[in-house]
Design a protein around this nucleic acid. Structure first.
Lengths: 280, 280
DNA sequence: CGCTCCGCGATTGTATACCATAAAAATACA
DNA sequence: TGTATTTTTATGGTATACAATCGCGGAGCG
């Protein structure tokens, strides 16, 4: 019930080996990893839940070895907390920190889209458009799961189009966090209001279409600005959901800051987007 | 052959009465992970080398289980390529991509330092200064290993001071890449010229001191600018080393780019640095 | 009545044996 | 003699058995 075909991270991000899509019979370890990962991202398993190895063994009908390997990989991804001799637990959302996420996204997303606007190849554009189309279809059908998934694939395709391995990896890591965070904005209540769900994501959809246009035309500045707009749009919605008090507890730590001086409006120069490597 | 000090005794079932505070755990899996990670980062094992599980078992006097767990963790970190049914190999540097690294660093180092300048607590500043002092000491002593290590700790402390989990994690991940890349700029040849080594890092040291000053004074703009200067300084040195042809092969892929239009000077606005959370 | 210490149970960490699979080699057939 | 197929073999993936560690609860003592 947890298998799909999209390219979630976890394996070699660059290598797209030969295909064996028909006989989708993943190895035990991979199966457990995918299933657990989906359950964690979809919040089927609540954050903070204790994950007992023996229980997972019974659930997935495998021995402890593949279970442990899956847990280790999930731990490296930040989805599972793994304390030595103390077992595993689903990572708390407080750790990932919703506010930090959108704050960082406010930088990462424009940067990534800037790079994509300047660097994307026609094939990249094609992929981006394809994933966006899937996302739009999911929105029209109020397909809860597809919305989350294809929105991930969409931004993942943009990450690929940035053609910078570091940015791609960092951005994709943040997208994983976003998967869980986005679920908070989609509590089960909204399932009863499919129309409202579609309406909300219709806004995201429209902004995303403009974003792709800017990227396709190579307009880096516009791509940055639209990416910022998109992030702010989503952030406002999710935060408003939180303020309603839905979903799991997300502790906002009382952080002591040295200063909170007003610094809005500072800028960071983006480096040259042209590569020095082409001449080598 | 690769261990510096402590944890090399493979079979010492002596009972340690109390605890070893925060020091290396004698756990098998952790030991293998640490050792392998060090060997990979220090380029003791060349990029691309095949890692045979049985060989590692003999080397570290453990069974395959902890070895496999260590390899999985290293794979998630991007230091090891793990192909199914094909074994493990040390990640190629081409994959991490030196050029991509400095390009991304040109953005994220100023961003991280900006956040640190605005958000760092006195305790953060204290930690940053302490690591910087260690770094300076290592430079003065031409301590090859300490230079790499404490420079990492120094920037890691800045990452902590940014007080944004996402930025902290992303920046720290890039620092791991930098560890290997920096080794390329320090080929064994320079060991014979300790003076030159110290001279080169003296420049890094001076810029780092200025960076800490800016962060301590909360001057975000200055911190950004100095961070950019520091990155460019290091990049120029490492790239020059590469052009000499030293070190391992670093394949600069002939990437097809859609366009290489001049976009230097574009800017990305940094978001507000003040947190909305303090009122909750 | 409370504190401490020891022993027990449960769970994680490690070792080893077994199975599946892919590269390699050898042989048989064209 | 070359190629294709089959067998071999080595390596990775999984299962299970064993050992170490931590938390907890009861008993003994202050």
């Amino acid at each position: 019930m947890t298998q799909t075909t999209s390219d979630m991270p976890g394996k070699a991000p660059r290598r797209q080996p030969a295909e064996k899509p028909a006989r989708a019979r993943p190895k035990g370890s991979q199966r457990v990893y995918d299933a657990l990962r989906y359950d964690i991202i979809s919040l089927t398993i609540a954050p903070g839940s204790i994950l007992e190895e023996t229980a997972l063994c019974r659930q997935y009908k495998v021995s402890r070895t593949p279970v442990r390997e899956a847990l280790i990989r999930l731990s490296s991804e930040g989805l599972v907390d793994l304390e030595p001799n103390r077992g595993a637990s689903v990572a708390t959302l407080q750790f990932i920190d919703v506010v930090d996420h959108y704050e960082a996204m406010e930088i990462f997303q424009p940067v990534t889209c800037h790079f994509a606007a300047v660097r994307s190849s026609p094939a990249d554009i094609k992929t981006i458009k394809a994933t966006l189309a899937k996302f739009c279809t999911a929105v029209e059908r109020s397909d809860h799961e597809g919305i989350i998934r294809f929105n991930y694939d969409f931004h993942s395709a943009i990450a690929t189009a940035s053609h910078n391995g570091c940015i791609e990896r960092g951005y994709r890591q943040m997208l994983v966090d976003k998967l869980r965070i986005a679920q908070h904005g989609l509590p089960s209540v909204t399932r009863h209001r499919a129309t409202a769900l579609a309406d909300r994501f219709a806004g995201t959809m429209r902004i995303s279409v403009r974003l792709v246009d800017a990227i396709e035309q190579g307009d880096a500045s516009a791509a940055e600005e639209i990416a910022r707009e998109l992030n702010e749009y989503v952030r406002a919605q999710v935060v408003s959901r939180f303020s309603v008090g839905l979903g799991h507890q997300v502790q906002l730590p009382t952080a002591q800051r040295r200063t909170d001086g007003e610094t809005r409006g500072q800028v960071v120069k983006l480096p040259a987007r042209t590569r020095q490597r082409s001449g080598a």
